[in-house]
Amino acid sequence: MTSTIPGRVGVVGGGRMGAGIAQVFATLGSTVTIAESGDRQAAFTRVSDGLDRAHERGRLGESDPATVLGRVSLVDAPDELPAGLDLVVEAVPEALQLKLGVLALVEKTVDPTTVIATNTSSISIADLGAVLDDPRRLIGMHFFNPVPASTLVEIIRTPSTDTDVVARVCEWVSQLGKSRVLVNDSPGFATSRLGVCLGLEAIRMLEEGVADAESVDRAMELGYRHPMGPLRSTDLVGLDVRLAIAEHLTETLGERFRPPALLREKVARGELGRKSGRGFFIWS
Rank of each mutant, 00 (worst) to 15 (best):
T2E: 15
V9Q: 08
G10D: 02
G10C: 04
R16D: 00
M17K: 09
A19S: 15
G20V: 01
A22L: 00
A22D: 01
A26W: 08
T27Y: 04
L28D: 09
G29S: 11
S30M: 02
V32R: 09
I34H: 05
I34L: 08
I34S: 08
A35C: 05
D39E: 11
D39W: 03
R40N: 10
A42Y: 07
F44H: 10
T45R: 15
T45G: 06
V47H: 08
S48G: 02
G50Q: 03
G58F: 01
G61I: 01
S63P: 02
A66C: 04
A66I: 02
T67K: 00
V68P: 01
L69F: 13
R71N: 09
A77Y: 05
D79F: 01
D79K: 07
D79G: 01
E80R: 15
A83G: 15
G84P: 12
L87W: 12
L87A: 03
V88N: 12
V89R: 03
E90A: 00
V92G: 00
V92W: 05
L98V: 12
V102H: 05
A104P: 04
K108L: 14
V110D: 13
D111P: 12
P112R: 06
I116D: 10
T120N: 05
T120A: 09
I123K: 09
I125A: 08
I125H: 11
D127V: 07
G129E: 05
G129F: 08
D133M: 07
D133G: 13
D134E: 12
P135F: 07
R137G: 08
R137N: 06
I139N: 12
I139G: 04
P146N: 03
A149T: 03
E154F: 02
I156R: 06
R157Y: 13
T158D: 10
P159V: 06
S160K: 14
T161M: 01
T161K: 03
T161F: 12
A167H: 12
A167C: 04
W172Q: 08
W172E: 06
W172D: 10
Q175K: 11
G177W: 10
G177Q: 07
K178W: 08
S179F: 10
S179T: 14
L182M: 14
V183W: 10
N184M: 11
D185I: 01
D185A: 09
G188F: 14
A190D: 07
R193M: 05
R193N: 03
L198V: 15
L200K: 15
E201S: 14
A202E: 09
I203P: 10
L206R: 06
E208N: 14
E208R: 15
E208A: 15
A211K: 14
V216K: 09
A219R: 07
E221Y: 03
E221V: 06
R225V: 13
H226A: 13
R232G: 14
S233A: 14
L236N: 06
V241N: 14
L243W: 06
I245M: 11
H248A: 00
L253G: 00
G254M: 09
G254W: 12
F257M: 00
F257I: 03
R258V: 03
A261G: 02
A261F: 05
L263A: 08
L263W: 07
K266P: 01
V267M: 04
A268W: 01
A268D: 13
E271Q: 14
R278T: 13
R278K: 15
W283H: 15
